[in-house]
Amino acid sequence: MKVKVCVGTMCHLMGASEILTTIQEIAENNPDIEIVSVTCPGYCHIGKKPPIIEIDGQVYENVSVESVHHILKGADK
């Protein structure tokens, strides 16, 4: 599973660094997760709400430290 975490300015302002830390913690116990921090892919410019992550091509918006757990679990199936 390839998880792209946007760490561009907008996402960073809305808490991306904590999202990244949380995913890194989850990935410690899950070797399937490959984390890539990416600079702004531009989703926020087309109306998506930051912070944004992308899992195997699927885009998730307005991600929180809480919701990222569920998102990763859901995407794992």
Partner: peptide, 17 residues
């Protein structure tokens, strides 16, 4: 930092690029 980052966001400057 959050003030200057907001300025980056508004002016479309991506420091990582």
């Amino acid at each position: 930092y959050e003030e200057i980052a907001s300025m980056f966001a508004v002016k479309g400057i991506e420091p990582s690029s």
